[in-house]
Amino acid sequence: MMNQTVVNVKDIHKVFGKRNENQYHALSGVTFDIKAGEFVGIMGPSGAGKTTLLNVISTLDKPTDGTIEIAGTNITSMKQGQLADFRSEQLGFIFQDFNLLENLTIYENIALPLSLQGVPSRKIKPSVVEVAKKLGIETILEKYPVTVSGGQKQRAAAARALVHEPAIILADEPTGALDSKSAKSLMDAMVHLNENHDVSIMMVTHDPLSASYCERILFIHDGSLYKEIHRDGSRSEFHHQILDVLADFAE
């Protein structure tokens, strides 16, 4: 299980702007793997290409060159409709600004991916309740997003990302809009999911503290892989390690 590759990114390039115009290389030859059950962080300064990388992996954007395989499927050659289906089956998203639909209850938000896959109503409820329990939000299921806290919203978003058991969860600055206490609690929950339920996670973040919860971190700089570090010791050691790499960027 641990050796199976979930994400395989091979030499991808992303160029913005047409030929003969001012071209901008957001990604130039990025290659890496994510194994099943891994918790990988992506870091780098603003403009390094983090978001572009996340967009192409999440099939929202297409790379100019190179291939991306997720759960054994090459997504670079798929059509729009297939991509949508692929996203709804294989990917789970957590965004910085939660992106919950505020006209649906928390329950309905979490249930949405299942409804979209045509799961019958009677099977939806147990799944939603189960995932809500994992994230400790089972008491707020009938509330609307506007009435709950930011931390709870992000847990609800995590639950929605998880409910259909995707191959991987893609998180884009999940702690960006949270206070430190909520951020810590969310990261604990993600580690718990990763360790106890074998959920693979790829997280883009700015925040060294959040990143220190990962097992492995890829640093990107000017569209290329700059450095890769693994966590061997404690989380606080890893935190310092990350800060050191970030300090390198400053120079």
């Binding site: 639909l101 006209n103 649906l104 309905e108 949405l112 409804s115 979209l116 109503s121 409820k125």
Partner: peptide, 19 residues
Amino acid sequence: NRTLNEKGINSFTLGQLRF
């Protein structure tokens, strides 16, 4: 009506309507 609401994108459509 759960069966209606949890079918496909209905929950969103009805949510839009209701709000």
